[in-house]
Computed example of a mutant assay.
Amino acid sequence: MFFQEPELQYEVTVENPDPHFAKLLQQAIGGQEGEMRVALQYMFQAWALPEGYEEYRNLLMETAAEELGHIEMLASAVTKNLRGSPTEMGEEAQETAATAEAMTRQNPRQFLSAGESAMPVDSNGVPFTGGYIAASGNLAGDLYANVMAEATGRTLATRLWEYTDDPGMKDMLSYLIARDTMHQNQWIEALDSLEDPVPVPASFPQEQENQDVNYTFISTRRDQQPDPSYPWTQGESPDGKGQFSYAAEQPGGGEVVAPEPDSITHDEPNRSAQPDE
């Protein structure tokens, strides 16, 4: 169940409307690093949790609802950057080449399809896709995905902050960057609260996995290299269940030969002679 209030989560102001920046802001709405992704990601993760995980479900849903508010903020920012800007399609300039050229600085569909407003697309106009969403049903795995999502989202927001000189936009982005800081930390804290956050899934019996390579860093270089003595090639593993080691070469074995295809596929090539033995 959802409720809504007719106000923004955080005030959004634009002092110098810029249609090009509106185009860039679309990445923070419908892009792979955007707010649509995390809002839906956290919802679907929450809906998969069984009874007994109420505190995690609440954490995910509270954050998902907050992210919906971020989408609204960004959509407002896009609209304010498009409308009233010196390059909008006003009546007096609609037929001039100068205005047509200026319009290319924004996503044409923001004018043609959305009437100078935000859309559920990225900065290239590519529609949002559910393929961006990570919701595996495994809480630990999903929390790791959430740390990554907030990290890439915060990186995007900082780049947008660096790009704009508009005080209002910098203020809004400063708020979003701060919330990404909190969300990264809360997901890490949630991971730390789990009994076995790694390896994922913790329910699989580790004695069933190959014990020769489960904590071995394997070099894929053609020529054998000495152990570089990095933290991931020696010492105790983070899960406390093994000791890192180093292998200078891959195990190898077997040939890359495909079995004969079924005749109904008609995959047999036409050839006049057999290859040399």
Rank of each mutant, 00 (worst) to 15 (best):
M89Y: 10
A157L: 15
N58W: 00
S117D: 15
G69F: 09
G115W: 05
M89W: 08
Q45K: 02
A97M: 12
L82K: 11
T13H: 12
T104C: 00
E88H: 13
K80H: 09
S85A: 13
L139H: 01
E54Q: 14
D122S: 03
A151I: 03
I71H: 02
T63V: 06
V78N: 07
M61Y: 11
E101Q: 08
S136G: 03
T158C: 02
A140N: 09
G52M: 07
Q32G: 03
S113T: 08
A75W: 02
E72W: 07
E150I: 01
Y144S: 08
A64F: 06
D122P: 04
T79S: 10
V38W: 00
M119V: 12
N16K: 10
T13V: 10
D18N: 15
R105N: 11
A75F: 01
G30Q: 05
A135L: 06
R37Y: 00
F21P: 12
K23M: 15
E15I: 00
N124L: 13
T99G: 01
L143K: 05
A145H: 08
E116A: 14
N138K: 06
G31E: 09
P108D: 08
A98D: 13
M36A: 00
S136D: 06
E15V: 08
Q94A: 04
G130W: 08
E67G: 01
R83G: 02
A135C: 07
T87M: 10
E33W: 02
E62H: 02
I71V: 15
L68K: 04
R37A: 10
I133E: 12
I133D: 11
Y144E: 08
S113Y: 13
T155Y: 13
L59H: 14
E51V: 03
G84A: 13
A46S: 15
A102V: 00
R57C: 00
Y132T: 07
L25P: 09
I133K: 04
E67K: 15
F21V: 07
G141W: 03
F44T: 07
G131R: 09
G84D: 09
A151H: 05
W47D: 14
M61S: 07
P86L: 05
G137L: 09
H70E: 13
V121L: 09
A118T: 06
L60Q: 08
W47F: 11
D142C: 13
E66I: 00
A77P: 09
T87E: 11
A64L: 04
M61G: 01
A28I: 00
N107T: 01
Y42E: 09
P50N: 08
T158N: 12
N16H: 13
N81G: 01
G69L: 05
E15D: 15
E92S: 11
Q110M: 15
T129Q: 08
M103W: 05
L156Y: 02
L112W: 10
D142A: 05
L25G: 03
M103F: 06
